[in-house]
Amino acid sequence: MSERGARAWILTPVWLWLGTLVALPFGIVAKLSISEQALARPPYRPLLAWEEGGAVWQGTLGNYLMLATDPLYLRALASSVALAAGSTAIALLVGLGLAQAAIRAPLRWRALALAAIVLPFWTPSLIRIYAWIGILKPEGYLNAALRALGAIEQPLAIHGSWAAVTIGLVYTYLPFAVLPIYAALERQDPALAEAAADLGCPPWRAFWIVTVPAAWPGLAVGGLLMFCPAVGEFVVPELLGGPGTPMMGRVVWLEFFNNRDWPLASAAAMALVAILAAPFLIHQRLGARR
């Protein structure tokens, strides 16, 4: 068989797979997002209708207009971005501390420390999120413990709040933040930190002028890796959030399953993709400059 034949044997199934199961679905969502909802099966009108005298364009930007003007959706958009950005920032800070601590550990403990940080990531995320319900709800372990200590009289209403969603997002995606930071710090020259210490630089200052710049590429990648899934998260706001923490992932779900508004769900999905594109472009620009 020729070289060309071998290529075809490898590339044909790959293109077929990616074409029908990645490119086509994306195209269908894009198409539906500019279709009009209808009480029919399927519940939308085709983009082109054939009438006497030719094809009639039936596409509309109404779904996007709805997303951009209805306060309900605007709030969901804003709170998705705010919750994802906030929890990503917290996870990066926590991740920086954990990665730095793991890298300073004696060599034979280092791998173990890293493994211990990543291991929970392998357990089902649904179960890890579910575990937090028991901790955060009014009659949960946290409130019981605080009450036993005499710290509070009335239970704290954490479950259902933005704090609960933030905790859930950080908890779910922390390894995404830790691993790239760890990888970046590992490449750092230890002599730099020593030099800073020898020159009388206090540890917290050395952290800012030596460790943080070294971790910078890891922070950028980790932030990207976490922000993307977090901004469209469904399970965390569904199980830990409440009416005050709407998120776009839930909007897509509810519009599709509860309201059967396929075009609006598609437009919400496209809006999320647009939000995701922004940090990617920024990352690429920053990468190009370096």
């Binding site: 899934p229 998260e233 776009m248 993709v273 990617f280």
Partner: peptide
């Protein structure tokens, strides 16, 4: 990189 809700819907 796509959130699961988008991939699922698509």
């Amino acid at each position: 990189v796509l959130p699961e809700a988008i991939l699922g819907l698509a």
